[in-house]
Structure formats: structure tokens, C-alpha cells
Nucleic acid binder design. Structure first.
Lengths: 345, 345
DNA sequence: TCAGCTTCCGGAAACGTTTACAGACTTTCC
DNA sequence: GGAAAGTCTGTAAACGTTTCCGGAAGCTGA
């Protein structure tokens, strides 16, 4: 493989000149720069990343930590692919690369992150699926590694985050259901302590209070973020003595499972039982009757994450002067038929 | 941040000794090693990856290239999450990390790969979604970077791959449909030149030949790997003058779209029109009537990919002496109701 | 003419590791 | 008792790049 030395020798210039030429430094003759660029292309030279980052102390890469276990992260129906694309769109403007770091399902997320940070393989991080208390945030702050989280947490202080508007979604979902005459409304929540569950529940309780409906903890069902989780939620609800007439789901993947269980019981969503889903996923678009849910642009979310991250990196702060971004990401209501009907009394 | 120098000074030993102790070299006193390990943990020292890989010429990381665009890859993100987990299980045994490299949707995959290879950020690569002719394979061979592809290609020569058994799946799907009395069978294929489309079509034509059914190119519909793609396939089929009685789908994401279009036309899958899907995805499990499709373990596939990759890496060839692995990955038939009925004549 | 400025380039140090080598000390064996 | 072997450690070079620094050459203006 050709290194900068071979390239320099081939051109009869010093390696310093080659480096300056390739990095767009002003103090190199235009003619020389052209020759260097041409030769680099011809010989297929690309700077060795290890050498470069050792010298510069930066890697020109940013990391996006996800979890391999769908259960843990919650989002799944092609959620991440869309977000990656948005992030990369921003990073490409600055010749930064995106490395996705999937935490193995059998490793502790904090330890995994610790390893990745310590390796200094990336200059900054996007961390998804934040928990109520999330040591990863302290860890990143201690390490002084720029980061943005996708989701909030009670840990850490004054760090940048972007969080889907779980609170708003819950509020609007309840509002719609109440407007349709429902009073006994169940909620499906995550089974772990991922933060979005708390935000969602907050929204639910706010809305119930506004509508002067007593909050009944027995109507909160915890389940996994999966089709099966949704099935179990519906199953539990149907088995209740005082059966609720509606359910609000926190995970996009739950909707199909809920529909399946309802169908098995001969119960038609939107006629006999109201369902409000979360994200309008490709899967949700298929359901019949159509699911009332909430729409967002994954790509735009990715762009926003990328820009917020750059804003926290000293090297780019001038270009993205937003400072510490803390943003609630809005979702747009997509009215469907699944919550259209009054409950049967 | 603490480097090996600070650690050495803190322990009053040389940096050489620290390095040897941490890397498990035999020529260091047990007592010393313990002290070093303890101090490293206490000070939170982890070797800087850039320095290490610069010296060793290897990065202790392997890359997994995917494409951000679902359309291009054909797989949903839950497909990859499962595979990642399997790969990591193998890599963890050798302290290798997995970096997922998502090719932006607006960048040419070969150029993206070229960049990643040239950066020398990984020691080896797994490349997914291979095309009929795929320059990435030549590129990797020229660069002498160990790699495995998920999917075959006509490019390159004697390189390791693992490919889902598209041919076998197509054969079995057709067999079942023919056994159920179908003769006019449509096939949904990818709209691009991804290799799996060719393998699938080969299988279809083999099976048709065995059953002495003429192959009718007009029954081959090309569409995107998505719910919408499936919808369009069904739409086209229903509009045909000589309407087929069955369809075999190549992408897991298509099934829901096909069902939706059939439902709209008041056509019941498995009664009025037969459908055979591809992978048994979480989504597929929900469909009603149940979808006839094919099951595989994503995690096992990941493990196999990981082991095949290590077998091609000189440093691990002794541990994984399989040599160049070329493996057809089997899928298990999951009989459903969607193809159960004889066609209406 | 020459001091001062600008433009361009080469030389060399530095980044943080690993590892070959040499050497100090201890043990073994005749 | 001394040579040989074994055990452990320190020293220093090397990996490929970027960047500071000094200096050569060309230009400007008095």
C-alpha cells in the first residue's frame, strides 16, 4: 500500500508538501498542489487514518450507539436506517464519517460505551435509548467527549438532547379518545426503565387530570417493544374484570400485536375497542382499520441530531453556533379509524 | 486523559513493561502484571486505538457495510440487528469490535467502500447486498482486505460468501403452489440488479421446468423492497388480463402490501389468491391468514459470517481453519394458510 | 542595492503505542 | 565456583501522519 512517503518520492517533493497540498493548506503552489492531487489519485493514496488521528488527536469519525437487542431500544421498524441517513447528510459536509456502534445484547451498555470512548475511535457520539438514570451520560461528560442523546434522562446536567415528543403524543392521544367518549383508557408502557416511558406516562396523567379522569394504575400495562408485547398487552386488557375501552401504545411495533389479539377475540379495532399507536411506521400503514398514530421524518431527525452534535464540537462550533441544543421533536397526528368510534356501553 | 506514560510513571516501571503486562505477554512478572492491571483500572487507562493500530498495522475492528436505503438492501433493520448480534458474539472472543458502516443513500457504494478501505479503519469487512456484478469485490481483493460477502456475485473469484438459499426457497415455494393446483404463478423480484434476484429467478425457472410449466416473463414483476412495493406488485397482477392465481415474493417487506391490495379488492389470500412470502419476519407473523414463508436464525447467520470472516484473516486462520467458506444458508419452510387453497377456476 | 515582505518548500519533532534487543539479575547444573 | 540458561525489565526504534520552524527564492519599494 502506498503511503505519503512513496507519494512524496514519486513526486520529488517532501512529505510535508504532500500533506499540505492534500489538506488544502494555503502555503503550497497551485501547480504543485495539482501535481500532488493527480499523483494521489493515480496511485490511489488515501491518508492512513491511524497515523492522522494519532497526530491530530481526532479521528474524523463520529459514533452512533444503538443496541442490538430490539427489546432494549424500543424503536425498530426501520427507524434507525432513516436516522443514519439524515445524520450522514450533515456529517458529509465536513468530511466526517459515521460509525454505528451496536452494543451486543449480552454486554452492559455503559461498559460497552466506556470501551468505545476509551479507544478514542470517534470524536463524538450520538447515544440512543436513554434510560431514566443513565450512567452513560456521566461517563461521556467525564470523558469530555462531545455527545448528543436521542432521548432525555435525569442523569447529567445541561447536556444536549433531542427527544421525541412523547408527552405531547400522550396528551393528544388521550384528548382524542376522551373526545370520542372514552373514560377508561389503558396505556402500554415499556417494561424497562427507558426514559421515554416516564415522559409518556407524564403526558397521560396530565391529560387525564385535564379531563378530570382519575388515574388508575391498574390500566398501565408494561410490555416489550415488539409485536408480541402488543399481543400480551391486549390479552391482559381483555382479561380484566372492568375492561377498558381504549388503549394508547408507546411502541410502533405493538400495534400489530394488539390488532391480532383483538381479531382473535372477534373485536374490531375502532368499533369495539379504540387503539392509538405511536409512530406511523411502514407496518402501521398497512393495518386495517387504519391506525391513528403519529408521523415524523426520520431523515430530518437525523439531520437535527447531526447538527446538534456538531454544535457541541469545538472544531465546528463556529459553523453551528446553536450551543447546547435541547429539543423536543414534534410528531404530527395521523388520524385513522382505529379510535373513531364511541365505546360500546 | 491518561496515557501509557502516565501509567508507567505512576507505577515506577517502564512503558514497555506496562504494555507487555496489559497485552498478556508471558515475559512479565506476575506480581508486576497485577499491579499494572490494578493501576490501569484505577486510572481508567485504555490503550489509544490510533497509536496501537499505527504500530501494529491492524485496528482490532471489523466493518459491516450496509446501506442506509432500505430499498437498496432489501432488509429491514431488525434483520441486521439480529445478524450484528451474532457477528459480535464471535468477535468478542478475540477482542475485536464491530463497526457498522452505513453507506449514505446518495453515495455510490463502491466509492464509499473505497474510502473506508483506504482509511484503514478496519481489519476486515462484511459486505451485504451484493449485486450481480459488484465492483466492491474486486476492490476488496485488490486491497487485500479480508472480507466475506452476505450474498454472491459474479464478480471476483474464489472469495468467501454466505448466501441465503434463494434458489431453494423459490423451488420449494413453486413446488407447494403447484401441488396446490396452481399453474399460473407470478414472481415479485427486486427492481435493481441485486444478485439475490437472479438466484431467485433461477430457482423459479428450475421448478417450473420440473413441473413442465412454461416460464412466462410477463408474470415477473419488479418492485421495491417495501410494503409499497408489495402493494404495487399485487396491483399489477390484479390488473392483468390473464390473471395469475399465485405470487411468490422475494422480500419480507412485500407481504403486507400484497395483503393490503388483495383486501382492498375483496380478495382473500389463501382462498382466492395464493401468496408465499420470503423471510418470516416479526411482521409476517402477524398476518391473517397466516403467511407461508421461510424461517432462519439471524443470530446463527451472524455467527457464521463472523467465523467465516475470521477464517480469512491470517491472524486467526489457525483458530478457524475452514479456509474460504462459501455457504448456502438454508431456510426452513413455515407452512401457513396463505397458499393453502386450490385456485378458483 | 538592499532591507523587508511574501511565497513556497524541506527538515524534523511529535502523537501513543508495540516490540526487538540488550542487559541485569537469579537460578541451575556440572 | 563458574558457565549456561532462564526470568524479568528498560531502552529505543518504528508505525504514518501533521505541523512548527527556518530558510531560500522572488518581489516590492525606497
Amino acid at each position: 500500500m502506498v503511503g505519503i512517503r512513496q507519494l512524496a518520492k514519486h513526486l520529488n517533493v517532501s512529505i510535508g508538501t504532500v500533506s499540505r497540498a492534500l489538506n488544502g493548506r494555503p502555503d503550497v503552489h497551485d501547480e504543485t498542489r495539482k501535481r500532488v492531487l493527480a499523483a494521489a489519485k493515480e496511485l490511489g493514496y488515501v491518508a492512513n487514518q491511524s497515523g492522522r488521528s494519532l497526530r491530530q488527536g481526532s479521528t474524523n469519525a463520529i459514533g452512533f450507539m444503538i443496541e442490538s437487542s430490539v427489546e432494549a431500544t424500543g424503536n425498530s421498524d426501520n427507524f434507525f436506517l432513516g436516522v443514519f441517513d439524515g445524520v450522514q447528510q450533515v456529517l458529509a459536509r465536513h468530511h466526517l464519517d459515521l460509525l454505528v456502534l451496536p452494543c451486543p445484547s449480552d454486554e452492559d451498555p455503559s461498559e460497552y460505551l466506556q470501551r468505545m470512548v476509551a479507544r478514542r475511535a470517534v470524536d463524538a457520539m450520538i447515544v440512543s435509548a436513554t434510560h431514566r438514570v443513565d450512567h452513560r451520560i456521566d461517563l461521556l461528560q467525564r470523558a469530555r467527549l462531545p455527545f448528543v442523546t436521542l432521548g432525555r434522562s435525569t442523569s447529567g446536567d445541561g447536556y444536549p438532547w433531542i427527544d421525541l415528543d412523547f408527552e405531547g403524543v400522550a396528551n393528544r392521544a388521550i384528548d382524542r379518545l376522551v373526545a370520542n367518549g372514552h373514560r377508561r383508557i389503558a396505556v402500554a408502557l415499556p417494561s424497562n426503565d427507558i426514559n421515554l416511558g416516564f415522559a409518556f406516562l407524564d403526558g397521560v396523567r396530565q391529560a387525564l387530570k385535564r379531563h378530570k379522569i382519575r388515574y388508575d394504575p391498574s390500566l398501565v400495562i408494561r410490555a416489550a417493544s415488539s409485536e408480541q408485547g402488543g399481543y400480551q398487552v391486549a390479552h391482559q386488557l381483555l382479561a380484566m374484570k372492568e375492561r377498558p375501552t381504549a388503549v394508547v401504545l408507546i411502541y410502533e411495533l405493538m400495534a400489530t400485536g394488539v390488532y391480532r389479539r383483538l381479531n382473535e377475540g372477534g373485536i374490531v379495532p375502532g368499533r369495539d375497542f379504540a387503539v392509538v399507536g405511536f409512530r406511523e411506521s411502514p407496518m402501521a400503514r398497512f393495518l386495517s382499520p387504519t391506525l391513528t398514530c403519529f408521523r415524523m421524518s426520520l431523515r430530518d431527525l437525523g439531520v437535527s441530531l447531526g447538527e446538534s452534535l456538531l454544535a457541541t464540537m469545538p472544531a465546528f462550533a463556529a459553523v453551528y453556533p446553536q450551543g447546547v441544543v435541547q429539543k423536543i421533536w414534534p410528531l404530527e397526528l395521523v388520524p385513522g379509524e382505529s379510535d373513531a368510534q364511541q365505546p360500546v356501553r
